[in-house]
Design a protein around this nucleic acid. Structure first.
Lengths: 202, 202
DNA sequence: GTCTATAAGTTGATAGAC
DNA sequence: GTCTATCAACTTATAGAC
């Protein structure tokens, strides 16, 4: 018994220490960009030395993978509770706004999660699986609003990632493209939403 | 006279040597990615040594800037002659297809030109000016098809870059998103094109 | 677990001979 | 202009003392 609770303690302490390293890593990439993640700077931030980092992560890629998993988990939680009213445009626009808020509020996280922009890094299947489950949320949302064709889901992801990408690349901190979310949602649903078939009935 | 033509000769030879270095640089980034551009590998490819590279470019950033200018120039030329029929959907879809062809045919060029994804690099104002003149082409094309609101131009750039970005990130070499160009163009023009006002007249 | 010290490899850029 | 040789700084990762 004592031995087992000792093990729990140690596991918890180890998890805390790992989390502290990851927190330092996030702070570093938020300030200096994803490419500036070096183990030296990371260790300095975490108040330890470089070899100690290797006591908790077996490599730099393992750190990136843990960050990817954290980002994916945050994304799923952030997108999981969305309003469901009787107004499709409002619901879908709210989802896009939620998505864009997530992306623009932490650009390095966005780049790690969606742009695969770290040269030698590929997320592990487990981490990637978490990210994939978020696409299912988008599919459900569209289905609830009468969009069933997978091609239309592809169009929807292109539009939303396009808005976010332009916003981040060409107007960081502004709302030049995020301010177009409602218009774009209306355009999309006018072409592919439920109302398309119902127009003749009104 | 002799002195002046001597100068021309030397200038031409120098320009050729610079071009050869840039060609080697493009080959390198196309094979190994933008991040893998190192002066050692570059010199090896060009058949010279590292210090000789500095006889033609004052720094690595100068090389990247020359590459950016080349990319922007290619882009303007690639996009400058576009069909102008009486079918707005066909014309605009052709322009997007041209754009996506340009992007997917040379992904590192696309990343350098549009994603600003090289850590310490910012293009010089001259090089950036070339790139900006290409956006004017898109604006003219939309104006010719009855789209005048600058907000709608922003929507258009978001859609087109979104399609290309998804294509490159999630289906490289395929046509899952580029195959949607015609549909998306129809959707956009149905909402914002000339035909919108003319529908009641037909 | 945490450290000092260091390995073994990059990188961009330069000095100086020819 | 082109080379050899090298600098100074950085990277990830490890050996071994405590």
């Amino acid at each position: 018994m004592l031995k087992s609770s000792d093990g729990d303690w140690r596991a918890a302490r180890r998890a805390n220490a790992r989390a502290a390293v990851l927190d330092a890593a996030w702070g570093l990439v938020r300030e200096n960009g994803l490419a500036a993640l070096s183990l030296r700077e990371l260790a300095k931030r975490a108040g330890i030395t470089t070899p100690t980092v290797y006591a908790y992560f077996e490599s730099k890629n393992a750190i990136l993978d843990a960050m990817f998993a954290q980002a994916a988990q945050s994304f799923v939680e952030f997108m999981s509770s969305l309003p469901a009213s009787d107004d499709p445009v409002a619901d879908m626009a709210a989802a896009v706004r939620r998505f864009s808020d997530f992306c623009v509020s932490d650009v390095p996280r966005y780049q790690l999660l969606f742009q695969h922009s770290v040269p030698g890094f590929t997320p592990s299947p487990e981490s990637y699986g978490i990210a994939l489950s978020a696409l299912a949320l988008a599919r459900d949302l569209l289905a609830r609003n009468g969009v069933h064709d997978p091609r239309h889901l592809d169009i929807w992801t292109a539009i939303t990632t396009g808005l976010v990408g332009q916003q981040i690349s060409n107007d960081p901190g502004g709302d030049r493209w995020t301010g177009l979310i409602e218009d774009v949602t209306r355009m999309f649903l006018a072409q592919y939403g439920d109302a398309t078939q119902h127009k003749g009935e009104s």
